[in-house]
Amino acid sequence: MRAVIGRQFGGIDDLSLEDVPSPTLEAGTVRISVRAAGVSFANLLFIAGQHQNRPSLPFIPGTEVAGTVTEIAPDAATTLRIGDRVCAGLPSGGFAEEAIVDAANVFKIPDSLSFAGATLFPTIYATAFAGLAWRANLKPGETLLVHGAAGASGLAAVEIGRALGARVIATAGGERKTAVAADYGAHHVIDYKRDDFRKSVLEITDGRGADVVFDPVGGDVFDNSLRCIAPLGRLLPIGFASGRIPQIPANIILVKNLTVIGLYWGFYMAWGKSKADAVLRAKVKTLFEELFALHEAGKLRAPVDRTLPLPQFADALRRVERREVIGKIVLAPTDRE
C-alpha cells in the first residue's frame, strides 16, 4: 500500500510517500480501506515530535479516517460488518491506503455523510462535544466564546454550542473567515485583526464576560480570554495553534472563581493503553450516536475545504500551516493520482 512515512522528526519536507507492506491485523481490530484522511494542525506537531501522542520511528501521520471495513479480527467485539461505511480515530497511521484500528474506535456513519465530511467526527466534533457538554457542562442561555472559529475545531465548537442552546461569540481573522463563522451559526462575530476581542466580548455581554471559552489557539488569545471571562466561568484550552503554550496566573483563577478544564480526546479513545475502560467506551459510543443525530438534523454541516489525492499531502499540510483552510482539508488515499 501507499503511505506517508516519517523516518525522523522534523518538518513537512522530512516526509515521503512510499510503498510499504500493508499493516497486520491485530487482536480486537478492524482493517479499513481509507477513502478520506483528515489533515489538522495536530499533524504538524506530531511530525515534529512535539505532540503529546509521540510515535516511534518510522511513523505514519493521521488520526482521523473514513472508509470501508475490509477485514475484522475474529475476537473483535463489534457489530461492524465487511463493507460498512465508517469513520475512525487512531493515534497514528491515517495517511495511508489502509489502516488498522481498535474496533471500539470505529463508528458506522450515516448514508447521508460523505467520507470527507466523516473525517471531522472522530476527533474534531468529538472533542468539541466532549469539551462543551461533558467537561464544561455548557447550559442553554449561557455565553460561549469560540476562538479560531473558521478552522475545523472552531467551527465544530460554534455548531455544537449553538446546538446546546448557547449564545455563541466567535473570533476569526479577516472578512472571509468571520463570514464563515456567522454562516455556521455564531450569534456575534469578532474580527480579531480589526477589533480588540476582549473589549468586544465585554461590550456584547454588558461587562459580564463569557461563561465558557473554547480556545484552540493559546498564546495571547488565552491570556486575553482570562480578562473577558465571567465569574465562575470555564475555560477549555483545546490546542496551541499560536505556537505558545500559555502559563495560567493563579490569582485570576482565584479572584474570578474560574475553572480551567483540560481535555485530551485520546484519553477517551484509550490511545496508548492496552485496555480501555468499559464505562468510557459506552460513553463514547453514545456521544457518536448523538453527533450523527445532530448531523442528520442538519445541525452539523461537516465543513470540508477541499479534498486532495494522497501524493499532495505536503500541499495539504502547508495549507494548514499557513492557516488558509476553512473547516477541514482531506486527503484521499485510495483515489490514485
Rank of each mutant, 00 (worst) to 15 (best):
A276S: 14
A278S: 15
V180N: 00
A116I: 09
P58Q: 07
F115R: 07
E337A: 13
G266F: 00
E203Y: 07
F313V: 02
V180W: 00
A118N: 03
T68R: 13
A149W: 01
L300I: 02
F95C: 00
R54M: 04
L300F: 01
R336L: 14
V158L: 03
E289D: 15
A172Q: 03
E98S: 07
A163R: 03
D206P: 02
R323M: 08
V201Y: 02
S112E: 05
L310I: 01
R2M: 06
I252N: 02
A96Y: 03
A163G: 05
A297Q: 13
A181P: 01
E159D: 06
A241F: 03
A42W: 02
G89W: 03
R85T: 12
F107S: 03
F214E: 03
G173D: 11
M1K: 11
S200Y: 07
V65F: 12
I169R: 02
T70Q: 12
D195Q: 15
L25C: 12
G154Q: 00
R319F: 05
A152P: 09
P333M: 02
L254F: 13
A172V: 03
L164K: 14
A316R: 00
A3L: 02
V39G: 01
A241Y: 02
D335T: 12
L15T: 09
S22V: 08
E290K: 15
V34T: 11
A73R: 09
L57E: 13
P91E: 04
I329F: 10
V106K: 04
A152S: 15
I5H: 04
G49D: 07
A163Y: 02
A270Y: 03
R176L: 14
G148N: 10
G89S: 13
L232C: 08
E64I: 13
H147L: 10
A332Y: 01
F288G: 00
S92V: 02
P110Y: 12
A316I: 01
R54A: 03
I261Y: 00
M1V: 09
